[in-house]
């Protein structure tokens, strides 16, 4: 049994009993942690407001013998309150939380994932971009070892006339080996720039062609690779 301090992002919360909540946290160095916050649904709670999803917190956690840890103390680092104000941004932020909650492992150093998630939330909090979710998901896929192969046809190796993306294999295909999602030249360009890490440039684009197709391909491929179905993405992707 021990008390330890961590930096964490609140991924999800569930009601527990009369006034408590169970939280799913992505911590910087202990991976995913599930913890109980006692009495936080009461209007007199001093910490309830700090434990909303998307919040980055400095937290002291009590680890006992049970499956769930206990929240002992919380300070808010960033609340990302702008994400609550717009349904599309809320859906995108929720998709990030949902997928990270499903793939993050417990008791593992998750500092790289933590940095990716906190930076993504910060960026989305400042403003939305039609390419945001696709760019985030491609970064996440790369981090987890599922980066798509976008250079040449996965069947014949040709780098000419690339026209399809296969969600199952994560590879592009030329028009002679048709299969999967049809790719326009502009979507292929977006995927390749995202793969190359040109994040800032992509997020700065105001109204790129086929942004919804780009986000849909990234989301479908992420769902396939991580074997999850994201409820938050209904209405966001095609």
């Amino acid at each position: 049994m021990s008390l330890y301090a961590e930096k964490a992002v609140v991924l999800r919360t569930w009601k527990l009993g009369e006034a408590d909540r169970i939280l799913s946290l992505l911590t910087e160095t202990h991976g995913k942690v599930r913890a109980v916050a006692k009495g936080v649904r009461k209007s007199t709670s001093r910490i309830g407001g700090r434990l909303e999803p998307f919040s980055i917190i400095d937290v002291r956690l009590w680890k006992g013998t049970g499956e769930l840890q206990r929240i002992a103390q919380v300070d808010l680092v960033h609340g990302h309150s702008a994400l609550h104000s717009d349904f599309l941004r809320l859906s995108k932020a929720s998709a990030i939380m949902e997928i990270v909650d499903r793939i993050a492992l417990e008791e593992m150093d998750s500092s790289v994932l933590f940095r990716l998630v906190t930076r993504a939330l910060g960026t989305l909090n400042e403003g939305d971009s039609p390419l945001f979710l696709g760019v985030f998901l491609l970064r996440l896929l790369e981090l987890e070892g599922f980066a798509p192969q976008l250079d040449c046809c996965g069947i014949c190796g040709s780098s000419e006339d690339i026209a399809y993306f296969d969600i199952e294999t994560g590879e592009v295909a030329c028009s002679a080996h048709a299969g999967g999602f049809e790719l326009s030249r502009s979507v292929l360009d977006l995927l390749r720039r995202a793969r190359a890490g040109r994040t800032r440039e992509l997020l700065g684009e105001q109204d790129p062609d086929d942004s919804r197709v780009f986000e849909t391909i990234a989301a479908r491929y992420a769902q396939q690779s991580f074997a999850v179905e994201l409820r938050s993405l209904r209405g966001v992707i095609l």
């Binding site: 999800r12 349904f87 929720s94 209904r234």
Partner: peptide
């Protein structure tokens, strides 16, 4: 209430 993560949209 709206909760995309629980699949509750408008």
């Amino acid at each position: 209430s709206l909760s995309p993560i629980d699949g509750i949209g408008p």
